[in-house]
Design a protein around this nucleic acid. Structure first.
Lengths: 334, 334
DNA sequence: TCGATTACTGAAATCGTTTACAGTACTCTC
DNA sequence: GAGAGTACTGTAAACGATTTCAGTAATCGA
């Protein structure tokens, strides 16, 4: 693979390396014959420039780093998909690294990506790690997903977690539910915290007394949703609706309810958050707060690319809006 | 980010760049005082070595390239997850690139990764592109996922598609089904072709006359599974079981059946392939052919890493075995 | 015919590292 | 006190590209 260098091509074609480089980059004036000959030799030898060497001198790698907390489920695959599509269209690669929760891990990942990427997209919903990022401010083009850092330190895109959750809960209230349970996400997770806050806001606005036993904690996995719902069913006064902080947990909850012989939505309503592609194929189809996840990735990549091209410019904070998608799992189709 | 170089550190610490390099790589003898001083200056200046420069001289990038057909759904997120975990543990990064179907796209992706990765994991189920890969043989460490290339050209890992599909269909037959439909995958897709072949083998072995109208084509998406099932329901003699070439399509099929008011498995049995994490949370829980997808990724990464370390060695062809997971969607729990 | 312009090409510096090689300054050993 | 080792450190040559600068040959206008 990396055996044939620009020198080989130059020697074989009887020109200097400079000329080969010029042919390759279609830069300056090269006579048609020379260009032709070099191109021919290059393709015969199977030459393609060495990325590292190139980026050493051009000071650009044409690669974006992507740091994610963990690669699990459709949520992350959709994000990566969005980022990759946008990056690829602009001729960029993406360097993915997952499972970075602790400060040290993030630090290490950042260091080891130095000189390999032109900028980074970081999704670090854990509230703890925000401080690490703080230090890094300004030294490197970064786009934050689901940050929760103070405004204008970084470019960032956040989901309208609070508004979306509030809206869904209000919808449930509107359809007569008052005992609405929530399967919340990890406590230290920013998105989870905001969604929970949205739930609480809606409950308060609806003058429903707060009942702590109605909120159980999950970790965004189907398994934890299943466990959460099971726990809720043991309550003396059973909730009439369950709002899960993401679709995976909602799906786990659905399955737990079925196991207990409960009908959804007749006996108990269920709603999720994210609208992963599978949500509409559930039985019953899952009502959820729609987030265009892949768009989230696209936006992040676009933002990062624009900041690479434009250099210094004011930081941008974007919000990704959510919409209610009412299917039949919450019984509020009317 | 890339402002502070080894020279800066050297100057600041009053030593040569060689010494700094030695401290960093913990290589040769450096006096404790010097080491201490250099380390202190380095961390004060926030130095970390420039990846490109480093890999230029060391001729190693500590990165693996991953070429995928498309990043969609849990299947791919699980694969990437498996690869990333293994790579990370070995101190490697992964460079992901998706949506490469045509020969030209794969070519371009391969070229542009030159000098940026030490080896590649390629998943190119399309039978067409196999020829492109052929050309590349031997020039670069490559592990193929779901290949279908002739043995011993590359390291490869393939799923036991044929055996798994056959086993599932035999299971359905054993439970009394004779009109078994299949929602197959894309025709030019290797995995899809093998799974279909497994279905046909099982039908033949069971002396069930082949009925072409029982096989409809999908593209591995939920949507196409939904469409496929809908189509099958229009048949005069309705099938009593549907075997989908992957879980996403099976899930789509489930949803179509529910919409038509059919009970699963009482009216019609459904089975899938892959056992994505969600399968068990379906309603009813989906019977499927279990594939440890994340292990597939891990194995691929492990294989590639070992070939990087060991250099030339005989090619390895591994098979990833499948197991039947009978849940209630196919009614054969007994 | 001469100088200027144009069109093309090559030599060499550069990017930020690693590493072979060549010192230097000790400490031992006899 | 000479020679040999040891422990450390610096110089400089790579790695494979890009790019500035200068040089050459051909063409052109006067």
């Amino acid at each position: 693979m990396s055996l044939v260098t620009i020198k080989d091509v130059a020697r074989e074609a009887g020109v200097s390396v400079a000329t080969v480089s010029r042919v390759w980059n279609e830069a300056a004036f090269v006579s048609p014959e020379t260009r032709q000959r070099v191109a021919e030799v290059a393709s015969r030898l199977g030459y393609s420039p060495h990325g590292a060497a190139r980026s050493l001198i051009t000071r650009t790698t044409c690669a974006l780093g992507v740091l994610l907390p963990d690669l699990y489920g459709e949520f992350f695959s959709e994000i990566i998909r969005g980022i990759d599509h946008t990056a690829q269209a602009a001729g960029y690669h993406i360097l993915v690294s997952s499972s970075h929760d602790s400060k040290d891990e993030i630090d290490a990942a950042l260091r080891s990506m130095r000189g390999r990427v032109d900028g980074m997209i970081i999704m670090s919903p854990d509230l703890e790690t925000q401080r690490t990022l703080h230090a890094l401010q300004g030294s490197f083009p970064v786009v934050l997903l689901n940050g929760g850092v103070e405004a204008n330190e970084f470019d960032s895109i956040t989901i309208e977690n609070h508004a979306g959750a509030r809206e869904m809960v209000l919808h449930l209230v509107k359809h007569g539910h008052t005992r609405i349970a929530m399967i919340a996400g990890p406590e230290r997770n920013y998105d989870a915290a905001e969604r929970r806050r949205g739930y609480e806001t809606a409950m308060t606005e609806s003058n429903i007394a707060h009942d702590n036993s109605l909120v159980v904690l999950g970790d965004f996995s189907e398994r934890s949703g299943h466990a959460g719902a099971t726990q809720l069913l043991t309550l003396e006064r059973r909730p009439t609706a369950i709002f899960a902080a993401n679709d995976s947990m909602a799906i786990g909850a659905l399955s737990a309810l079925h196991e207990h012989g409960l009908r959804v939505p007749e006996d108990i309503a269920v709603a999720g958050f994210d609208d992963i592609p599978l949500a509409r194929y559930m039985n019953p189809p899952l009502s959820t707060v729609h987030v265009d996840i892949s768009l989230l990735g696209e936006r992040a990549a676009t933002l990062l690319l624009s900041s690479l091209l434009q250099g210094q410019r004011p930081r941008q904070q974007q919000q990704l809006s959510t919409t209610l998608v009412i299917r039949s799992s919450c019984g509020g189709l009317s």
